[in-house]
Design a protein around this nucleic acid. Structure first.
Lengths: 144, 144
DNA sequence: TTTATTTCGGATAAATTTATCCTATTTATG
DNA sequence: CATAAATAGGATAAATTTATCCGAAATAAA
């Protein structure tokens, strides 16, 4: 569904959010440990999230990654996915055709449309807050 | 969503079906032309579809690929996807966690579940016949 | 102002996916 | 039986994604 980079990015953002509630910044090292991902690769993905204004980075000593508390409920899963994988999962054709719309559809266009609309809707309506609260409450996990 | 191989495989199966209605066998060359895919790579994918009994191949002179007419309405999109990409799109975790179920869910488990169930349902209930008929009727296309 | 800490970013490597090429094998037909 | 036509399959290459490494730049604190 999503690239590995995107999966790491989502989990990283969730972890950062849980720490940001406590006013804490976190390092790529801690993030990678908590979400079970390769550290250097995760750092690269974090840079991308910073550039797309999903999370905030503070350089230098006592730096790290954080998200402003009041932004946690504003950030949607869709923004994170778009920052890393782009929007092909929304706009692309399910069968990979370059041009696929109502006027020139692929044979499965209508079938895929239902699923993709559902996915789009889910991503656009799921906030980082919901996901982070699942972690804080202990009802969900970021690694096995 | 799916790999390129899978996209080609689905389109190839649809094209073969349209030809099989007319009692015609087709070559990888013709398939690749009609679905706009690399020929040799497409041939490899066809082998996989043959091994998974999605389509039938006849070797030697006057050979080619075909699907028995009465099987076209039986083959589901799910079988083709499973033959090429496996079933990770059904059973895997949306965030890539190895273990992710009701007892040990990822933070987005419930959110993903809705979408994936919808996808699974669509793939398991869409037949090759439906898709092939969209091509035969000229209401849909296999390339741009 | 020096030092320790930390993110940034470029270069590179490893792994996987996508794609090509060439030969072997199979089979209908003359 | 010989030949031509076709799929099967192994080896390899190209492209993309995933992952690592290391030095540069920024910043807080001594």
């Amino acid at each position: 569904m999503f690239s590995k980079a995107c999966e790491y990015g989502i989990k990283a953002a969730i972890f950062i959010a849980t720490k940001s509630y406590e006013g804490l910044r976190v390092s790529p090292k801690e993030i990678a440990e908590k979400i079970n991902s390769p550290q250097a690769f995760t750092a690269k993905i974090l840079q991308s999230l910073v550039r797309h204004h999903v999370v905030n980075s503070i350089k230098g000593a006592h730096g790290g990654f954080e998200i402003q508390k009041d932004r946690i409920s504003e950030v949607k899963l869709a923004q994170i996915v778009k920052a890393i994988d782009g929007d092909k999962i929304y706009v692309g054709c399910g069968l990979g055709m370059e041009k696929c719309d109502e006027n020139h559809p692929c044979p499965a266009h209508d079938k895929f449309k239902i699923v993709r609309d559902e996915l789009k809707n889910m991503l656009e309506n799921t906030t980082l807050e919901e996901l982070a609260l699942n972690i804080k409450s202990g009802t969900a996990f970021l690694k096995t």
